[in-house]
């Protein structure tokens, strides 16, 4: 589904990814853990196509096709979704309006017509309810004045609405209290399916208690330095990243 092969990327003169390779199959949940500055957020931005980053080597295939030459919106409609660590505020644009514009872009790309307003409302209400998102929140401008928990729930709601094939969650647990973490995790788990995959980027093990991964990777200094099962995350929680940081430096 998602294949990253020997990916090298830089921002300015600084090389951040130094030959990262990762293969994600449909239905799998991969966790990427690592110390601060390992390149975790960079990886998510590069996959989503943010400018500022320059890919110098390697390739990224989504369902067999290279996406590195695609615009961010083309990657989105091709099925790639990024749940932001810090969701962006768009003043004056009602969340509902934003959702409608996003959904219609996806439908258009698939050659489908726009939904009627009642159809759309019904669809949004369905996904919003599961995430404790009130209709008042849907009327408010995108992420403006949202609490940390509200922002993350809104991200998952967008994900549920757009039905992506590969979901990248960038530090989705940051800024969440335990109750919010539960709601968000349940939202993510409800979306798990045999034809959808997840890449969960996190610094801490606690998110992985709720979203249980199939495979855990340790990212350090721009490379995957170790891969294992869920027990690897527990080991990291206990012993920290020191060993890997040292390895990478060596």
């Amino acid at each position: 589904m998602l294949e990253i092969k020997n990916l090298h990327a830089r921002i300015g003169d600084r090389e951040i990814l130094k030959g990262l390779t990762l293969t994600v199959k449909p239905g799998e949940v991969h966790a990427i853990m690592g110390p601060n500055g390992a390149g975790k957020s960079t990886l998510s931005y590069i996959l989503a196509g943010k400018e500022d980053y320059e890919v110098t080597e390697g390739e990224v295939l989504l369902n067999g096709a290279s996406i590195l030459d695609l615009e961010p919106n083309e990657r989105s409609v091709a099925g790639l979704f990024l749940a932001f660590q810090y969701p962006i505020e768009i003043p004056g644009v009602a969340t509902m309006t934003f959702l409608k514009a996003a959904l219609n872009s996806h439908r258009k790309a698939k050659g489908e017509g726009e939904l009627t307003t009642p159809e759309f409302m019904k669809l949004v209400k369905g996904v919003a309810e599961k995430l404790n998102i009130t209709s008042d929140m849907l009327k408010r401008p995108v992420n403006v004045g949202f609490s940390g928990g509200e922002k993350k729930r809104a991200e998952i709601m967008q994900m549920a609405l757009l039905q992506p094939s590969i979901c990248i969650l960038d530090e989705t647990d940051s800024g969440l209290d335990i109750d919010a973490l539960k709601v968000v995790s349940e939202g993510v788990n409800a979306l798990r399916s045999p034809d959808r995959a997840f890449v969960v980027i996190t610094h801490y093990q606690r998110l992985l208690d709720h979203i249980v991964p199939d495979i855990v990777h340790v990212l350090s200094d721009g490379r995957i330095v170790r891969t294992g099962g869920p027990e690897l995350a527990l080991d990291l929680e206990k012993n920290g990243y020191a060993a890997y940081v040292a390895n990478a430096a060596a």
């Binding site: 196509g49 961010p72 919106n73 990024l82 932001f84 505020e89 514009a101 872009s105």
Partner: peptide, 18 residues
Amino acid sequence: QLFYCLQRGLPQEEAIAL
């Protein structure tokens, strides 16, 4: 802001208009 809108599938012109 622009990147966020694009990531959700909006083409650049639509994102700016929004």
